[in-house]
């Protein structure tokens, strides 16, 4: 009973302390980098492997676009949050990280859900091998889920 009462207090402290006594260890090491892919399916039993990168970066980001993003960068910031969720999902798996990834991707794809109402998501990590070539391995594969159930 007491533990249940003080648990939220400890959780709040755990969230506040890194801000009150920050570590400021930005970019101290570059590790494997997450990529999210999705496949939209017409039926839950489809076994299509038409994986597409979720929200790919623009091929060419112009300087005026960079300046606009100084004031409005909502999608990019959400993508950065999904990078955090992906790292959390591997390092310290929780239902929250999984749910955030699936729900945010589903909302993004909702306009296409009439024709292809089912969604599967995979998480890959990209890392160079000993020869420097980039390789990726799948760290998480979601079940096939109905997009409407995730909205």
């Amino acid at each position: 009973m007491i533990i249940r009462l003080i648990q939220p207090v400890f959780k709040s402290l755990a969230l506040v302390l890194p801000a009150l006594i920050p570590s400021w260890r930005f970019f101290d090491a570059v590790s494997a980098s997450p990529r999210l892919d999705y496949v939209l399916l017409a039926k839950q039993t489809d076994d299509s492997a038409d994986w597409r990168p979720f929200r790919p970066r623009p091929e060419r980001l112009t300087f005026p676009a960079m300046l606009r993003r100084m004031l409005w960068n909502a999608e990019r910031n959400e993508s950065l949050f999904l990078v955090s969720c992906s790292e959390r999902l591997v390092q310290n798996p929780t239902a929250h990280s999984q749910s955030e990834i699936l729900r945010r991707i589903a909302r993004h794809l909702a306009p296409q859900a009439d024709a292809t109402p089912f969604l599967q998501v995979r998480l890959r990590f990209v890392l160079p091998d000993e020869d420097g070539a980039l390789n990726s391995h799948v760290a998480y594969l979601s079940p096939v889920l109905a997009v409407k159930d995730l909205l």
Binding site: V30, S33, P34, R35, R57, P58, E59, R60, L61, M66, R69, R76, S79, L80, V83, V126, L127, P128, L134
Partner: peptide, 8 residues
């Protein structure tokens, strides 16, 4: 290869 560059 990191997730940070905002454009290809």
């Amino acid at each position: 290869f990191s997730a940070y560059p905002a454009g290809e």
